[in-house]
């Protein structure tokens, strides 16, 4: 699955961008994800996919994979030799169904 389903209007893209640019929002996302998600005009199926860590569905809705990879790092970890490797594995497992 590549960029053919890309939907630039998904509000989740703004969520990832804001998390990247705003350390305070990042901390809040870790502490109270629901409160952060409430502030974005996410479509119901888009929100459910984020909450379920279901990247396959998220991408099918049109989420950009590059930002999907970053979303996985906000959730699972961002350091090169540790959390980011976990994030990659979780992301790939969701996309391929090989959990």
């Amino acid at each position: 699955m590549g960029l053919e389903k890309f939907d630039p209007t998904l509000a989740g893209h703004d969520l990832v961008q804001d998390l990247k640019w705003n350390p305070a929002l990042r901390a809040e996302f870790k502490a109270d994800e629901k409160a952060v998600l409430d502030r974005y005009a996410l479509r119901p199926d888009e929100r459910r996919a984020i909450e379920a860590r279901d990247f396959k569905t998220l991408y099918a809705l049109g989420f950009h994979p590059y930002l999907g990879g970053q979303l996985s790092r906000f959730i699972y970890g961002n350091d090169a030799g540790g959390g980011a490797l976990v994030a990659n594995k979780k992301l790939i497992a969701s996309l391929t169904g090989e959990r």
Partner: peptide, 9 residues
């Protein structure tokens, strides 16, 4: 490379 994709590796 395919960052964030199913073929990430």
């Amino acid at each position: 490379h395919e960052p964030g994709g199913a073929r990430y590796m």
